[in-house]
Amino acid sequence: MPHGDGRPDQGIWEVRGPAREFTHSCVVVWAAFDRWCGAVPNSASTAPSNAGPPSETRSAATSSSGASTPNSAHTPSTRTYTQYFGGTEVDASLLVLPQVGFHDPTDAGMLGTVAAIEADLLRDGLVLRYRTEVPVDGLAGRVDYDDAADAITAMEDRGARLARTGNEAAATAVSGAGR
Rank of each mutant, 00 (worst) to 15 (best):
D9F: 06
E21R: 15
Y130M: 02
V40Y: 04
T106S: 15
R164Q: 14
A60W: 14
V134G: 00
V127L: 15
T23E: 04
W13T: 10
S49F: 10
S65C: 12
A163K: 10
E118V: 12
D34I: 01
D5C: 05
L162A: 09
C26V: 02
L121H: 01
S175I: 03
V40P: 08
T153V: 13
E21P: 00
D147H: 06
F22G: 01
G138D: 05
T57W: 12
G6Q: 06
T106V: 06
T88V: 07
W13H: 13
A154Y: 00
A119K: 15
D147C: 01
S45F: 10
P70E: 03
T172A: 13
V15S: 12
Y145S: 03
A31N: 07
P98Y: 02
D144C: 11
D137Q: 00
S63L: 12
D107Y: 04
R161K: 12
H3C: 05
F22K: 05
P53A: 11
E156P: 00
R35D: 11
A60Y: 09
V136C: 05
V29P: 02
S59D: 14
R131D: 15
Y81C: 08
G138I: 00
L95W: 00
D9Y: 01
A170E: 15
L94R: 02
R164W: 01
G52M: 10
T75M: 09
Y145G: 08
A92M: 09
G141H: 11
P105I: 09
T172V: 08
R58Q: 07
V96A: 02
A61C: 08
D107K: 09
T69S: 05
N42D: 14
A163Q: 07
M155T: 01
T106Q: 10
T153R: 14
H3V: 11
L122H: 00
E14D: 08
N167Q: 11
S43N: 10
Y145E: 06
P76Y: 01
D124V: 04
D104T: 03
N50D: 14
R123D: 11
A67R: 13
G11H: 13
A177V: 01
Y81H: 09
G178W: 00
F85K: 12
H3R: 08
E56G: 09
N167E: 07
G112D: 05
S65F: 12
T80S: 14
H74D: 04
R58D: 03
V136K: 01
P76K: 07
T82F: 09
P105M: 06
S93M: 06
T106L: 13
R161L: 15
S175L: 07
T172M: 07
D150Y: 02
R16Q: 10
V28C: 09
A73D: 15
P70Y: 11
F102G: 04
E133H: 09
A169H: 12
R179A: 13
I152T: 08
I12D: 11
R142P: 01
A149N: 12
